[in-house]
Amino acid sequence: MKRVYVNPEVCIGCKLCELACLTEHSQSKDLIIAYREERMQGLLPRNTVEESGWITASLNCRHCAEPYCIQACISGALTKDAESGRVVYEEEQCVGCWSCLMACPFGAIKRHPIKEKIVKCDLCPERSIPACVSACPNQALTFEEK
């Protein structure tokens, strides 16, 4: 399956991928409104630019072949879509037990800042290329089959 891959050699740590993710998952689809208003109501980017000195890398859900998060999920909110291979998240079903969050070896699952729910990458189902990949100014993010 196609996944988002980061090349840390050319990730410049600008965090435009986070802004793109935020906008894509906002109500308004408008960066300024999303950042100023919706973020205050709990909107979060699904990806995180990890930093260690000058080495940076944008990380998101790996949509693992055998996801630990799904094994850990007690409510059936996380499932593996057989066709696309994506780890799909149903917010309605999530009970906020944080089991997946602890099970994920990549730290790719976040807590919603207000709701007792998790937040994770959905690979932008409405876009052919995920928002983070489109926004990267240095092609450090690619969406490809490896």
């Binding site: 050319v10 410049i12 740590g13 000058w54 240095n138 092609q139 450090a140």
Partner: peptide, 13 residues
């Protein structure tokens, strides 16, 4: 040649 800046040039691009 500052590593954090040099990486702004992706050789492919």
């Amino acid at each position: 040649n500052v590593p954090s800046l040099a990486r702004r040039q992706n050789p492919e691009i």
